[in-house]
Structures are given as C-alpha cells and as structure tokens.
C-alpha cells in the first residue's frame, strides 16, 4: 500500500515537472543586457558580479552577512562550555 502511494506521488511530481519543463521558454535577456550596458557606469565595478551583489542587490548581501552572524552565534552558543571556557 505504501509503495503504491510512493509510486503515485513520484508519477504526479514527474508529471508536474514535465509540464513545467516542456513548451517554449523565451530567453530572458533584458536584465543581462541592462547589467552589461550600465553596470560599470552605475556602480563603477569592473567585475559585473560585484556590481550585482554590492550594487543592484546589496540588500541580499547584507542578509547573507546576517545569516553568517546568526550561524556563528548558534555554533558558539551550542558548543561552548556554558560560556565559562
């Protein structure tokens, strides 16, 4: 019984994925072209990856630093010997 349920679940998921992957998908080029044309002038960074992650998407980078801060806090909290080391 359980195996039948698993097989049905796999079939349903693969059907959804097949539907999602089939068909025409126009290439998204507008964002790329805008960054290639304006990245250097907007942010001054010659590395366009940097112009994205510190220019256009600096807020995401800020969030990543918060994630690392929280993870460091968690590791120290759970592994230090009650803060008495």
């Amino acid at each position: 019984m359980r195996r039948v349920v698993e097989i049905i679940a796999v079939l349903v998921v693969s059907l959804i994925l097949a539907l999602a992957l089939s068909g025409e998908h126009p290439r998204q080029t507008e964002t790329k072209e805008a960054i290639v044309e304006n990245g250097l002038a907007d942010t001054g960074a010659r590395n366009l990856v940097t112009s994205v992650y510190l220019g256009y998407r600096a807020f995401d980078t800020f969030g990543e630093t918060i994630v690392l801060l929280v993870s460091v806090s968690g590791v120290i909290y759970f592994l230090s010997k009650g803060g008495k080391s």
Binding site: T43, G44, A45, S51, L54, T61, T65, L69
Partner: peptide, 20 residues
C-alpha cells in the same frame, strides 16, 4: 579601484566572513 564603496564593503565582508 574605481568603485570605492564596493572596495570597502568587500574588505569589511572579507573580514567578517573570514573571522566567522
């Protein structure tokens, strides 16, 4: 560098990530 803000932020993030 001709992107001083990105330069400074890179150094700060590098300090933070390396230490973390």
């Amino acid at each position: 560098t001709n992107a001083p803000f990105a330069f400074v932020m890179n150094i700060l993030i590098g300090l933070k990530v390396g230490a973390g």
